[in-house]
Design a protein around this nucleic acid. Structure first.
Length: 566
RNA sequence: CGGGGCGUGGCUCAGCUUGGUAGAGCACCUGGCUUGGGACCAGGGGGUCGCAGGUUCAAAUCCUGCCGCUCCGACCA
């Protein structure tokens, strides 16, 4: 490709709208342009990168027996109504009507479509297992699209669906995908970590997320230095903590004026925060829920949601609290009606603790959980923090941030049951197909790669996904010798199968170097005066800045060697 | 959905307080000069100042409404 023909409009200045580095660099380097909030055009350089990522993904999916197909973007409402997700998805779903008033949506994911697609055709155990996938644009009307390609409203995703006879088959498919995902992200040159995850709205049980480790990541994860445990904080388990034994005291109501926070109550009573109980109120589709954790702990809302089986959960407002007959700042589990009390397992270990009395300026003291109140649910609902013990080995966990580039789920029969996808086993008995779903954010992976590979001058592409491998730069276009040698190097590299850009633009050397660094070609091949007079072609590695000189006739093999090392 | 900020040429921004014929740098076009890290000189093209109302002799500037972008929040009572 000749740079004079390449449509890659670079910007000297960073557009004001971009906050994270990947977004800034993709705009500046001429990879993307915005069409609307969270919706982007992929220009030729970006498209080349995306196709490389897709190619790696296809190879790894195919290697595990996946078969590629393509489903529609526009999906009819009926199948979503059958599984209930037409309502569950809420405002995040792009909806539209055709001229007859029939409801459709732009596919946010395709479990419903794939399941209805195969249910009429797959009738026998002989047709299983089956793995089908597509690479397709997905649509989610995010509350707040941000960070460029990292959280867009339209994005490119690979989604694979596995269909098995039973749980054993599902586990096998799941393990294959887990392995394939590890291979994909390794080949893309990313530093990543699979972590245990909460399946969330997709449903099912058993899930891992593949996290690209980056400061700008939206997800918080913990991992153990002592063993290989790693999890999203939403999921990370915690064992209950024992409290030192104490003789139970009689419960008493005590005036605690103005103590609306744990810190204030603890100070007023002269107790450490870990001898108190914190109560948070949530409105859910299952009614009002009180979540109890030890005073110095935090609530994990996902765990609360799972503990009560709620689809919807948010902090209760003052009106809801008033209706429930309690007082903000002084809430507690004792004497409340029509409230589901969920206690963290650690709370149940406390002796002579403190809870709000559900009236202003009063707390109960010397409360003994189990004796003085009995929660409807006791579960692990605590949010893990750095330094908490690993649930597997007890070593303190470390915290990190990650960009979720892939997630694998064991769905079991959630969708196959709702959509009636069954097969006949050997004995002629009807069985429900067991499913898994496996996604990779292709466009997000591109952004994540930039988040992890950049410097002050621009992008540093891992060679496997770089839009081009090398840029040939004649320093002085006016010099015929340089121009001709650069043309020759370019022709030879292309003939040798090296994806190369020849910067034939009538620009000064500085401009060409700056653009090459910004775009992030792994190698710069500089043809200057020395190349012509001393037969020394300069090859500079983008990442390390390392410089090699080759005689022109050896340059191509030298470049191929360098690329092989990247 | 709540709160803040911002919408002026392709990009970054000034001008708005105090109304009076729309600016700079970069980018772009022409010519010259230059050629190893975003040169220089001269000339030139390009803007319904987000949209719609209103106030005024006169609105980018003041007022009202709307739209868009962006940041924070929508978790620890």
């Amino acid at each position: 490709m000749r740079a004079s023909q390449l449509y890659a409009p670079t910007l000297r200045e960073t557009p004001a709208e971009a906050e994270v580095i990947s977004h800034q660099l993709m705009l500046r380097a001429g990879f993307i342009r915005k069409a609307a909030g969270g919706i982007y055009n992929y220009l030729p350089l970006a498209w080349r990168v995306l196709k490389k990522i897709e190619k790696i993904v296809r190879e790894e999916m195919d290697a595990k027996g996946g078969q590629e197909l393509l489903m529609p973007i526009v999906l009819p409402a009926e199948m979503w109504q059958e599984t209930g997700r037409w309502d569950v998805y809420g405002d995040e779903m792009f909806r539209l009507k055709d001229r007859h008033g029939r409801d459709f949506c732009l596919g946010p994911t395709h479990e419903e479509m794939i399941t209805t697609l195969i249910r009429d055709e797959v009738r026998s155990y002989r047709q299983l297992p089956l793995m089908l996938y597509q690479i397709q644009n997905k649509f989610r009307d995010e509350i707040r699209p941000r960070f460029g390609l990292m959280r867009g409203r339209e994005f490119i995703m690979k989604d694979l669906y596995s269909f098995d006879r039973d749980e054993a088959g599902l586990n096998e498919s799941y393990n294959k995908m887990y392995d394939a995902y590890s291979r994909v992200f390794t080949r893309c040159g990313l530093t990543f970590r699979p972590v245990e995850a909460d399946p969330g709205a997709i449903g099912g049980k058993g899930s891992h997320e593949f996290m690209v480790i980056a400061e700008s990541g939206e997800a918080a994860i913990v991992y153990c230095g002592g063993c290989d445990y790693a999890a999203n904080v939403e999921k990370a388990e915690l064992h209950p903590i024992e409290a030192p034994a104490e003789a139970p005291q009689p419960m008493a109501l005590k005036d605690t004026p103005g103590t609306k926070t744990i810190a204030a109550v603890a100070e007023f009573l002269g107790l450490p925060a870990d001898k108190t109980v914190k109560t948070l109120a949530y409105m859910t589709d299952k009614g009002l829920v009180f979540a109890l954790v030890r005073g110095d702990h935090d609530v994990n809302e996902i765990k609360v949601q799972n503990a009560v089986g709620a689809i919807f959960l948010q902090m209760a407002d003052e009106a809801a609290l008033a209706a429930a007959g309690t007082a903000p700042g002084f809430m507690g589990p004792i004497g409340v009606k029509d409230v589901t009390v969920v206690a963290d397992a650690t709370v149940m270990k406390l002796h002579n603790t403190v809870v709000g009395a559900n009236q202003a300026d009063k707390h109960y003291v010397n409360v003994n959980p189990g004796r003085d109140f009995k929660p409807a649910v006791v579960a692990d609902i605590r949010l893990i923090r750095e330094g908490d013990p690993c649930p597997r080995c007890g070593e303190p966990v470390k915290a990190a941030r990650g960009i979720e580039v892939g997630q694998v789920f064991k769905l079991y029969t959630k969708y196959s049951k709702a959509l009636n996808a069954t097969y006949l086993d050997e004995s002629g008995k009807e069985q429900t197909i067991v499913m898994g779903t496996y996604g990779i954010g292709i466009s997000r992976t591109m952004a994540a790669a930039i988040e992890q590979n950049n410097d002050a001058n621009g992008i540093i592409w891992p060679a496997a996904i770089a839009p081009f491998q090398a840029a040939v730069i004649p320093v002085n276009n006016a010099d015929q010798g340089q121009r001709e040698l650069a043309e020759k190097m370019y022709a030879e590299l292309v003939a040798a199968g090296v994806e190369t850009v020849l910067d034939d633009r009538d620009e000064r050397a500085g401009v060409k170097f700056k653009d090459a660094d910004l775009i992030g070609y792994p190698l710069k091949v500089t043809v200057g005066a020395k190349a012509v007079t001393e037969n020394k072609v300069e090859v500079k590695t983008r990442r390390s800045g390392e410089v090699h000189f080759f005689p022109a006739e050896e340059a191509v093999s030298g470049i191929k060697d360098l690329l092989a090392q990247l």
